[in-house]
Amino acid sequence: MSYLASHPLRVATLLGGHVEIVAVALAVALLIAVPLGLFAARRPRLSPWLLGTLGAIYTIPSLALLAVLVRAFGLGFAPIFVALVVYAQFMLARNVVAGIAGVDPAQVDAARGLGMSPLQVLLRVEFPQALPVMIGGVRIAAIAMIAIATLGGYVGGVGLGVLIFNGLTLHQPQMIVAGSVTASALAVAVDALLRLVERRFATA
């Protein structure tokens, strides 16, 4: 822990960078995954294929994917950002589909029967009901993204991974510990925070 104590500003800056890349990637990933998930939820025959494809992408080892992305985008912010967005798709879209599929059919029947348009049924009934499950997806995705984002230290010089990879190169175990402990603490904190949000939106 001595590195953390002696270089708090350095660690804080890298932590800020780590949070930033995960947050931006998560926001962009949501912009893709939510419409994708809603589309799949409406097409039960297509959705296993779509989720299967996203799941297959998810199983590609992150280092291998990064190697390909570095060839495509060069070193820096871009490859790790794209990797994070791509990985998150499976967890986010899957939970959008599961959330919508889990909505009580009686409530959807009542909503239609009372005269909600298809868009109103989605926005006023299905979406709010599916929200806790969707937030659960965000939580799982965010934690995985915090872990994967450490590779940004290797390919882009961003985030807490910088400490880990520099520590490896310079044989400085204290740096490695500082980077990994801070990243883990971030993951635990985000998990706890999103659990609270999830509970806030639970209906039962």
């Binding site: 009580d104 059919p105 009686a106 409530q107 959807v108 029947d109 009542a110 909503a111 239609r112 029967g113 009372l114 005269g115 909600m116 348009s117 006023r124 009934v125 709010p128 009901q129 209906t203 039962a204």
Partner: peptide, 30 residues
């Protein structure tokens, strides 16, 4: 169809009250 349904009341066995709304909000839907 939507206008028609708003002018015809509908009650089902499973009730289907909207779980994320209060009683008042449920009654106020139509």
């Amino acid at each position: 169809a939507v206008e028609l349904r708003r002018s015809v009341g509908y009650v089902i066995q499973a009730v289907g009250l909207f779980a994320h709304m209060t009683v008042a909000q449920n009654v106020a839907v139509v």
